[in-house]
Nucleic acid binder design. Structure first.
Length: 606
RNA sequence: GCCCCGGUAGUGUAGUGGCCUAUCAUGAAGCCCUGUCGAGGCUUCGACUCGGAUUCAAAUUCCGACCGGGGCGCCA
């Protein structure tokens, strides 16, 4: 007979009043211990709940060695794992814990065993008091303990449930879950790739996929018709609070569809999940907003539409203004937008000092400055009003719906920079002035996107989404769209190019030579030539979606083992160095300063 | 690569040039306690990220490094 321990009969969330009198075995972690001298209470915890187990010598029948049992219970320190056998009994009258599902009962310990003691935890897992969580670096270093916290368990449960429901829906709609390679070919366009050296072919590298884009398109060529995958994707770019180097997408592709077909599918999928999780109907279809309207009205291609606070475009109405800055901007083909803070908030919460603060902030957001006026006694008041004709003032008032007491901000400059800056202002004001409703989820489709964007510095064209989007309107627009939630882009989709010649042309427009196209994408264009069906798809960022749905501060809170801002995993210290022999095997030499003797480097390079 | 914010016992914090032998809470250790549930009471333990500079005097000011976070760039 080898080593064995007794099996538990219940989890720590199972026992109820109806189990009174049962002999049970529970196993779990010691979260809190309350030693009253004679009687000791232990909160025994596992994923499913908390059960109070009691060492109560006076209740024990004769024949049990209470002293021995006391000695065992004494070893049950915080967060150690223990096994207890005992009898389910009613709690003493008036000591029920109504907050806990198991709060009507407790387990009288008759035998107990320390399964594994715990080191003293570096932070308190059970303490639900606000602000007692340690810094995130400590949480990440001891992630297995952080994940032991109820809040993290709930998050993982939510995520698991959510993903399960997605799969359930997609399977019901004839989607096939197909896995695509993690070791893939590097595509030089787009994000920086994580590289994996090939031992068999020294000097060559696999790339970890930024998305399974080309594989899923080939699956459509293959006739799979409907594909999905919960795909791990990798991008070697700097992190943000909503961006990780390694993340999970719900990746989908469908053949013989329109943009609307894809969107309908997503809406129905989310509605299905919504109903299952929240028991409520999700309002579909989601409203559509064009790229142009999003930019000019909200200053963002992912506007938060839970609150209004729109920008008002005034460039066309102020053509004859004498105000120098506006005049110049109009002459240069720029844009002027206004933003109206209505009197009920403006008068109360935004004083002269605040206005100055916003002017400073505007400069930080890349705006040239910020002009402002107040509506007072039926007219506009500020030091620049004199430059505006009565007609100017009237048009401003009517376009911006300016009423007594309102505070008007104006931003002017080059189209994109100014609108994005104005978008930052809008967001900042909304957050400062508490205009953002909590616990509302506002899905939108961003549609009518451009095919290309021109880099203002280099003049080079870049794909707005990616180079595989089906262009239309003479290559000016792309059949692509984003799905937005509360100011986050949670996914993007498009119809794809299925004609090899069109695909080549798009690469040409992006400035690639025939040789380069052939080398990097020849294999893919070849595939399109073998009867690629019209197709399209979408990818939804699962980590980010869960983050928004659970109101988390960062995407890291929805990933079991995330990387920190510097792309390190604190729990296992990755990335790490490898032995020289391993590098030699791969025929790789490090040029990193700390690794290499620089006296020898030039020598070595030869 | 750049900008901003932060770094005080294991954890969370107070402390803006001398009242600091550094606050409070939590924790840990020990003792007391038979109905608690973030138990309670008493005692004890435990910290200014590092290196320079200014000063009679630095946790506090300045400079630099390191560490963490937020943002810009980047993320087709």
């Amino acid at each position: 007979m080898g080593y064995q321990i007794m099996r538990r009969t219940h989890t720590c969330g199972d026992l109820r009043f109806s189990d009174l009198g049962k002999e049970v075995c529970l196993q779990g972690w010691v979260r809190f211990r309350r030693d009253h001298g004679g009687v000791t209470f232990i909160d025994l915890v596992d994923r499913y709940g908390t059960t109070q187990v009691v060492f109560d010598p006076e209740s024990l029948s004769v024949g049990i060695d209470t002293q021995a049992l006391a000695n065992i219970v004494k070893t049950f320190t915080r967060e150690s794992v223990v096994s207890v056998n005992g009898i389910v009994r009613k709690r003493v009258e008036g000591t029920n814990d109504i907050r806990n599902d198991t709060g009507d009962i407790e387990v009288l310990i008759t035998t107990a065993k320390l399964l594994n003691k715990s080191e003293l935890p570096p932070f308190e897992l059970g303490n639900q008091k606000e602000g007692m969580l340690p810094g995130e670096d400590v949480r990440l270093e001891f992630r297995y303990l952080d994940l032991r916290r109820t809040e993290m368990i709930k998050t993982m449960e939510f995520r698991s449930r959510f993903v399960h429901l997605l799969r359930q829906y997609l399977e019901s709609q004839k989607f096939l879950e197909i896995e695509t390679p993690i070791l893939a070919k590097s595509t030089p366009e787009g994000a920086r790739d994580y590289m994996v050296p090939s031992r068999v072919h020294p000097g060559t590298f696999y790339a970890l996929p930024q998305s399974p884009q080309l594989y899923k398109q080939m699956l459509m060529v293959a006739g799979m018709d409907r594909y999905y995958q919960l795909a791990k994707c990798f991008r070697d770019e700097d992190s943000r609070k909503d961006r990780q180097p390694e993340f999970t997408q719900l990746d989908m592709e469908m053949s013989f569809v329109t943009e609307k077909d894809i969107q309908d599918n997503i809406e129905h999928m989310l509605a299905y999940v919504w109903k299952s999780i929240y028991g409520k109907e999700l309002q579909i279809p989601f409203p559509r907003i064009s790229y142009l309207e999003a930019m000019e009205k909200y200053g963002s291609d992912k506007p938060d539409l839970r609150y209004n606070l729109p920008l008002v475009k005034l460039s066309d109405d102020l053509r004859n203004t004498n105000y120098g800055i506006f005049k110049k901007v109009i002459a240069e083909g720029g844009v002027i937008v206004g933003l109206n803070l209505k009197s009920d908030i403006a008068l109360e919460k935004v004083g002269r000092n605040d206005v100055d603060r916003y002017i400073d902030l505007a400069k930080k957001f890349g705006l040239g400055g910020l002009t402002w006026m107040r509506v007072k006694n039926g007219t506009l008041e500020s030091n620049i009003v004199k430059y505006f004709t009565p007609e100017n003032i009237e048009v401003i008032k009517s376009k911006m719906d300016a009423e007594e007491g309102d505070l008007l901000f104006f931003m002017a400059g080059p189209w994109k920079k100014t609108l994005e800056g104005a978008g930052f202002m809008r967001r900042q004001l909304a957050s400062d002035l508490n205009l953002i409703p909590k616990n509302t989820f506002q899905f939108h489709w961003l549609v009518d996107c451009p095919m290309f964007e021109v880099d203002p510095v280099s003049g080079k064209k870049d794909a707005y989404h990616h180079p595989f989007v089906l262009p239309y309107d003479n290559y000016n627009k792309g059949a692509c769209f984003d799905i937005l939630l509360n100011g986050y882009e949670i996914g993007s989709g498009s119809l794809r190019i299925y004609d090899p010649d069109v695909q080549k042309k798009v690469f040409h427009i992006l400035g690639m030579s025939d040789e380069k196209i052939d080398e990097d994408f020849g294999w893919f264009i070849k595939a399109l030539g073998f009867g690629a069906p019209p197709h399209g798809g979408i990818a939804i960022g699962i980590d980010r979606l869960i983050t928004v749905l659970l109101n988390k501060e960062t995407i890291r809170d929805t990933i079991a083992f995330p990387k920190n801002k510097k792309a390190e995993s604190l729990v296992d210290n990755s990335p790490g160095k490898v032995d020289d022999e391993r590098l030699e095997e791969l025929q790789i030499m490090s040029l990193a300063i700390n690794d290499t003797d620089f006296d020898n480097i030039e020598e070595l390079k030869k």
